[in-house]
Structure formats: structure tokens, C-alpha cells
Simulated scan of single mutants.
Amino acid sequence: MPRIARVVLPGHPHHIVQRGHNRQMVFAHEDDFARYLDDLRELKNVFDVKVFAFCLMTNHVHLLLAPSSTEGLGKLMKTLAARMTRYRNKLEGRSGTLWESRYKSSVVQSDGYLLACCRYIELNPVRAGMVERVEDYRWSSFGLRLTTNAQDDWLDVHSCYELLGLTQLGRQQAYRAFFEAPVADGELKLIRDALQRGQLTGGKQFAEDVERVLGRRVEYRGRGRPAHDLGN
């Protein structure tokens, strides 16, 4: 069965997941996590890709990225994977692949979906029972988003986040409140299914707009739409 053509739209957020080969462990020590994030911080500038959210689990990563070009996303993911593979192979005196051959991706409609995807990504450790509170996990973007040290926050800021408040403190408080609010029915399934199937995470109009840009039919996951903003 042929692979579904990957949809890449410059300037739009893409929810990415890449897993270890055969679900093997990718990050065994703190240095592994730190190295990957150092590479991500460097390479996002090299390939002109914005990073809105991330979560590094032991055997896979979740990223929310917006490339400026069609080629930028693939180049970033390929280089990230290659660097981590060389690093782990050298440490362990081994050879071979570390990651699955193909990462999963879903283009995300910004309005009504981007912040929900951020929450989905950053709550992974809580859902997995690794921590009780989202802020207790070191290797996600949640802590960076709420940091008071501007030098530590290298995440890019989407307009959806800027609309949360008039000040940085106000935006941070609203973002935290969003994580404490109940998740809408069907939100997790909607985001998970779109990612697993390579579909769009968005509504019907968004899908129609994307189809016009690409000149071909695309699938989307729009039922169970997340709330439009954090006030809902």
C-alpha cells in the first residue's frame, strides 16, 4: 500500500511525533535530553523553523513546528535524528538506526486548535503517569513558556498565545489556567487520530483552503472541535 503524501504547508504549525526504532529508548540519561534540545534550539535557526511546543519522552518526541519553507521541516527532522543517532551510537559503541524511518505529522489549524495541541503535547508526561503536574516534567516546553527569565525562553511565540493577555504575566497566567481546565470531550482523540493518520487537525473550511493551495484532496479531523480560546 503506497504511503500517504505528507502535507507540508510553510508558515503553518505542524504537529510532529518521531519514535525510537521498534519503540526503543532514545533518551536514557539527562544528557541525552539536554543534547537534543540544544540541537533543536540551534537547528531551528539554521533551517528557519519556528518551535511552539515540544515534549521529549523516553522513546519518542512530540514537536509543534512551523517551517518557513516546504523543505525546512524535513531537513530539520533529518538532521535532528542523525545527530542523536551518531551521539547514542558513539556512546554505546554500536551502529544502526535509532529512530523509525518516517515521522508522523499533521498540519494544525491555528484558530481553535494550536493551543489545544500545545496542551496535548505538554501533558504527555502527566497522562503517562510520569509526573502529577505538568510543571514537574523538565523536558517539555511548559516550563519555558512560563519562565520569568527571558534569556531561557527560546520558544517562538504564536499570535494565538499573544492574544491570551496584554502582558507577559497575564498570558502566562491564562496559559496555566488552560492546563487546569477540563479537556473538551473528544479533544485527545481528535488530535491523536489526526497525527496517526497524517490528516489535518482542523475544521472543514481549513481543509478546503488547504485543498485549494495543494490542488488535491486532503483529509482532516474536525469533529470534537476544541474551544476557540482559553476563556471557554
Rank of each mutant, 00 (worst) to 15 (best):
L164W: 07
M130I: 15
N124A: 15
R119G: 02
R133T: 06
Q151A: 14
R119V: 04
E132G: 11
N124I: 06
V157R: 14
L146N: 13
F142G: 00
E122F: 05
E132M: 11
Q151W: 06
A150C: 05
Q151T: 12
Y137A: 01
R119P: 02
N124M: 06
W154I: 03
V134I: 14
C160N: 12
D136I: 06
Y137G: 01
Y120G: 03
I121L: 11
A150Q: 13
F142Q: 00
E162T: 14
D152P: 00
V131N: 09
E132V: 12
Q151D: 14
S159M: 07
R138L: 15
S141R: 02
R138I: 02
N124F: 06
R127G: 05
L146F: 05
W154H: 10
V126H: 01
I121T: 01
Q151P: 00
S140A: 13
D136W: 09
C160F: 05
Q151I: 10
L123A: 04
V134K: 00
W139T: 00
Y137D: 00
D153K: 12
L123K: 08
F142W: 13
V157D: 06
G165R: 05
G129S: 11
E122V: 04
W139L: 08
R119Q: 11
R119Y: 08
R127I: 11
R127F: 08
R127H: 12
L146R: 12
L163Q: 14
D156E: 10
N124G: 03
S159E: 15
E162D: 12
R138H: 09
V126Q: 05
L123H: 03
C160S: 15
T147V: 08
C118R: 07
V134C: 11
V134Y: 00
W154T: 02
V131I: 12
R133V: 04
I121E: 02
V126G: 10
Y137T: 02
G129P: 06
G143N: 15
G143H: 04
S140Q: 03
W139H: 05
